[in-house]
Computed example of a mutant assay.
Amino acid sequence: MARDIARLNFLRRALHWAGAIVVIGMVPAGLVFTDFDNRDSIEGAFGAGSFDALYNFHKSVGAVALALVAARLAAALIWPAPSHAGAIPAVQSAAARAMHVGLYALLVATPILGWAGTSAYPAPLPVFGLFDLPGIVAPNRPVAEFLLALHGTCAILLIALVVLHVAAALYHRNVRKDGVFARIALW
């Protein structure tokens, strides 16, 4: 039975869903559009120069993802989450906290590793053609390859946690019907 559980601040909910859209689109696209083995196929499908354009778009959206998570962390400091004590068992509450810590850690680490790896490559970091992000790591190809591999691994782990997070949200909404999902719903 649904309970009245206090909702998160509207800005926190909006930032959550904006970040969700970015991550759910970004990771699969990044796995395809940043793999140099796919260059010929991508340019065959989308035209000459499309691989670089899509790769640069991936970098731009990565910058947006990092800005969104920074905004989410700031919003969490300003508007802490209301308590859901008693609404869910303590073990579920602990699991939810661990899941959120893992998600936030990967939401921060993944774009920073991409930025650092691209800096070490060295390659430009354009943000929608408006400006370039500065390099944050000295040029070093072996370091770049390591950082970019770690970036990819973190992206896959992030998607795995997102799948678990979505499953838990659907469980609360459709099975337990305990009002937990309403805390983050936009409407």
Rank of each mutant, 00 (worst) to 15 (best):
H16L: 01
K59P: 01
G86A: 13
D178Y: 05
P126Y: 13
I156K: 15
V64C: 08
K59M: 10
I88S: 12
L164W: 08
R13H: 10
H151R: 10
I88F: 01
H84M: 14
I112Q: 00
G30W: 08
P28G: 05
H172E: 10
V180T: 15
R12F: 01
N56Y: 01
I156R: 13
V127E: 07
A48K: 10
F46C: 06
N38E: 15
G44S: 12
L186V: 14
D35V: 01
G25V: 07
E43Y: 06
A20L: 07
S41M: 12
S50E: 02
G135S: 14
I159L: 15
I42D: 13
A94V: 08
A65L: 14
D178T: 04
A14Y: 05
V137T: 14
I136F: 03
V162M: 11
A85M: 04
K59S: 07
V23W: 02
L31G: 06
S60T: 11
M1D: 09
A185G: 08
A18T: 09
A85F: 09
L11S: 15
M26S: 10
V101M: 10
G86Y: 09
A6G: 14
S83W: 05
R97W: 09
A138I: 06
I78G: 00
W187E: 11
F146R: 06
A18C: 13
G25I: 13
F46H: 06
N9E: 15
L133W: 01
L15P: 00
A144Q: 08
R183Y: 09
W187H: 13
A63R: 02
G114M: 05
I21H: 03
R7N: 13
